[in-house]
Design a protein around this nucleic acid. Structure first.
Lengths: 351, 351
DNA sequence: TTGAAAGCGCTAACAC
DNA sequence: GTGTTAGCGCTTTCAA
């Protein structure tokens, strides 16, 4: 690749301001103990020269990078099917920006990439990592923990080694599901079906657990596994209706699935919510508000999850327990720990 | 932020292999002129020590970063509404990975962020930038060009200064639209409506131009502006039907819009394609294949656009015209220039 | 073919 | 308070 055009150095600024490099460095880095008059002279010189610190030189000595890797493991087809990761990225980006840190995006697809990502993280190019890996059997989290990089996971990793502490941020999937199903039960519904998400993901498993918390000893025919997509939601809904024609409610594991289910219900001439009440999960606005009827659903604040992950990571880094692969804390001063965010039931017309 | 755990240096490898740092450096960087026996010793030492080069130290001397910024300007709500950017990111990521370069993601929302991005790019932290900015009045492209970073744009920038060459990758929106409308005309349709995209985006403008290429002197009532979302697609379709009850075909500016239009047509009891034929744009699989009926649409290869942008940028960087803000070339050895990718009409049931 | 040595631009002791 | 200085880990002449 080509060379960057040469830019002014600390040295140049120092010369222009008539001070030493150390002083310029102090001013630039906001250290105190520099007389205001001098500081002002330096600032002007910085301005005039258009000086921007050379991050490579800085990293070389500080061993910090002000950069965080965001690792998204494929096959998370969801990355491309719903706005989930996009929203998380937005939250992460905002928070990193607020801390003057950069976001290095690492997308992986398959084993080769795992090694690559492991090498990159172990290579000490970033200060920490935010990792999305929601599959039970994903080897990536282990790899990453071994790399010794401070890490916060997005969603409870379906992986537990027990020997190391894992810090993650998740929604209260189980509690949210419970609330959804209780709501349906409160409406007087008794035959409440559940279209699950892919059960190799903890979020889907947790939502199923929440359903079961309420529907103890539920008829197993009321359960159909699906994959979080509208198309498969349709398939699942058909299956459910064929198996249980007396169904009077459905809890779908996410809004996309619910939208598919609604289509099938309409197609079969069933009224929502009169004949079958439907509750989704996510409160993905473009979906939940546009369905017919608008979807009652469990809201999780996805962007906030991203922000929170980032805050936990950065806070852990500040505390200096970086090399241990442990970081983050729920409360200032407390021990680093995972956070589970509450969910909210949003009532619209479908239930 | 915390310090990284100390890792082996070139020095350590050199000591272990019993050679000089220079030799290790040569081996690590694949320079030739090192006797195979020595090289082998070095490689073993690298392996045993788990040596990974310190990128900061390397950048400091080479002035290269092996990193590319991807700038996505909000309000591109689309980032979060359809898989467009996600697919581009995937293409970009793959290509960068193949070149051992990193992806630094810069999401912006609003003026403040523009300055921040400008500073970052001008700061020489990355070798180049891939910029998505599809709005006619976006100040970001100008800012970026002024930063003097080699840049390739995603989509024809709706911005032209004339004084600088702009390199971009785009789909043949106009040609694709033309093909779509010709297809409808070929079906014998005469009252062909067009639901446009937001006309402050070049892609929408180009598709409208393509429509007009075929529908010379079209009834202006056949045109409704929309915003690329399903919900507004519904609104637009209603408007179109109210204005032109004799409508026999619709070309929607993207698949999402088309899906909304299909819903309204069904709601009004119109058969597709018998009464009204519909063609979309994008061939977003999860959408186009799932509509009822499946959507005839114009395919653009979005992931390939991402890959191509990246290739153009990297190639430009290799050629060394980096500092000029110009880079990329369509053919090896030719002058750097933009590329417009062909589109394909995909026939399904809706037209 | 290999090694010695000079920096890249910056921060952080330490000295003044 | 401010300046001097010694590296951080690497690439790259230049000599050998």
């Amino acid at each position: 690749m080509s060379e960057a055009v040469s830019r002014p150095t600390l040295e140049a600024v120092a010369a222009r301001a008539g001070v030493s490099r150390a002083t310029v460095s102090r001013v630039v880095n906001g250290a105190d103990g520099v007389r205001e008059a001098l500081a002002e002279r330096v600032r002007r010189a910085v301005e005039e020269l258009g000086y921007v610190p050379n991050q490579a030189a800085r990293s070389l000595v500080t061993k910090r990078h002000d950069a965080v890797a965001v690792v998204i493991a494929e096959p998370e087809t969801r990355v491309f099917a719903d706005p989930f990761f996009a929203l998380q990225l937005r939250g992460i980006s905002k928070e990193l920006t607020a801390h003057d840190a950069q976001l290095v995006l690492l997308l992986t697809e398959g084993r080769d990439d795992h090694a690559r990502v492991g090498r990159y993280l172990a290579g000490g190019h970033v200060d920490g990592a935010l990792v999305f890996s929601l599959h039970l059997d994903d080897p990536l989290p282990g790899l990453i923990q071994r790399a010794g990089v401070p890490t916060v996971f997005g969603g409870r990793p379906g992986w537990s080694d027990g020997s190391r502490r894992v810090v993650y941020v998740d929604s209260d999937n189980r509690g949210g599901a419970r609330e959804a199903v209780r709501h349906l039960a409160g409406l007087g519904r008794r035959r409440i079906g559940h279209i699950t998400g892919p059960l190799d993901q903890t979020s889907a498993v947790d939502r199923l657990d929440g359903y079961r918390d309420v529907m103890v000893d539920a008829d197993p025919r009321l359960l159909v596994e699906s994959d979080f997509t509208p198309a498969d939601g349709e398939r699942a809904m058909r299956e459910l209706l064929d198996r249980c024609p007396d169904l009077d409610a459905v809890f779908a594991a996410n809004d996309l699935t619910a939208s598919g289910a609604l289509r099938v219900l309409r197609e079969r001439g069933l009224r929502v919510p009169e004949d079958v009440a439907v509750v989704g999960f996510d409160d993905m606005l473009p979906v939940a508000e546009q369905t017919d009827p608008p979807l009652t659903t469990v809201r999780q604040d996805i962007e906030e999850m991203g922000r929170l992950m980032t805050r936990l990571l950065l806070r852990g880094l500040d505390r200096g327990d970086g090399g241990t692969g442990q970081s983050g804390e729920a409360a200032v001063g407390g021990a680093p720990r995972s956070v589970v965010l509450p969910t909210t039931l949003i009532r619209r017309a479908s239930a």
